[in-house]
Nucleic acid binder design. Structure first.
Length: 267
DNA sequence: ATGACGGATCTAATCCGA
């Protein structure tokens, strides 16, 4: 049985629960990792997703901001969330599941945006972002023999073709060298493989986010690739398909991010 | 032309996202 994992920064799950339902019905991933649910656990709209078969839900919300949730139609266990940087933010949740005789860990991340000014000395949010990414260095692709998948809104576009203009974004938070190098360090020290760029070559422009502030997101196509799917090499070798649901940016009252999916065959 | 938007919050103006 193929295994499909999706990640989507939903920018308020209560406001966009109908979009999530539409997505689950049409794409039917086994797992959907949501970020920026922007609600507390008891406000999370579980029922419409349960009704579609996503009865296993690991929700780690907080009031107003941030928050992550992993929905699954397969049983999950050992739900865990880690408090990066001891801020008390809800920015991570992980689950274990079994598939084709293996145990796999799935990490769902929402990395801090980092504010406007790319200088940790004067901008505490940027300092927080850099420290968060440094802490991600000890999230390994294989832990105690268990291979992992790491998805989420990492808020960093690491490659030149992950932004609409490498040159013009070098001093813009999300694409500064200190961020892209920090993310690359966590990626390499963790022993990860980038499933999306394994499939869609780095020579091609690829985005998953387009600003709300642009009057027409399709005009000039000024996006960034902020949402990622990484995996342990032994899982990466079993990748069958990658999909970026670009059309979702054009849905009614859309999130500014679109879903990204990976399908693996673990047989 | 990196904002001309959009969401949550002690519903009015403020903070936040990236």
């Amino acid at each position: 049985m193929p295994l499909t994992i999706a990640t989507w920064n939903i920018n308020s799950v209560r406001l966009r629960q109908s979009l999530v339902v539409e997505f689950l019905e049409k794409w039917q991933p086994d797992f959907l990792c949501l970020q920026e649910i922007k609600c507390q656990n008891d406000q999370f709209p579980s029922k419409p997703f349960t009704r579609l078969g996503y009865e296993f839900q690991a929700v780690h919300g907080q009031k107003g901001y941030h928050g992550v949730a992993t929905l699954s139609r397969r049983p999950i266990e050992e739900i865990h969330s880690r408090d990066f940087c001891d801020m008390g933010d809800s920015r991570h949740v992980s689950v274990l599941f079994r598939s084709d005789g293996r145990t796999v860990r799935l990490h769902n991340f929402y990395v801090p945006a980092g504010g406007d000014e790319p200088d940790p000395e004067i901008n505490p949010k940027f300092d927080h972002k850099l420290r968060f990414v440094t802490e991600m260095e000890d999230v390994k692709s294989v832990e105690s023999g268990i291979p992992s998948i790491l998805v989420g809104d990492l808020n960093i576009a690491p490659l030149e073709n992950d932004v609409w203009s490498h040159k013009q974004l070098l001093k813009v938070v999300s694409h500064t060298p200190v961020e892209t190098e920090g993310l690359t360090r966590a990626f390499e020290l963790g022993g990860w493989s980038d499933l999306v760029r394994n499939t869609i070559p780095p020579s091609e422009k690829l985005f998953t986010w387009w600003s709300y502030r642009s009057p027409d997101w399709t005009k000039n196509d000024r996006g960034r690739r902020l949402d990622h799917i990484w995996a342990a090499p032994e899982l990466a070798g079993r990748l069958k398909k990658i999909e970026v649901v670009r059309e979702a940016r054009g849905w009614e009252r859309p999130s500014d991010h679109v879903p990204v999916l990976a399908t693996l065959n673990l047989e």
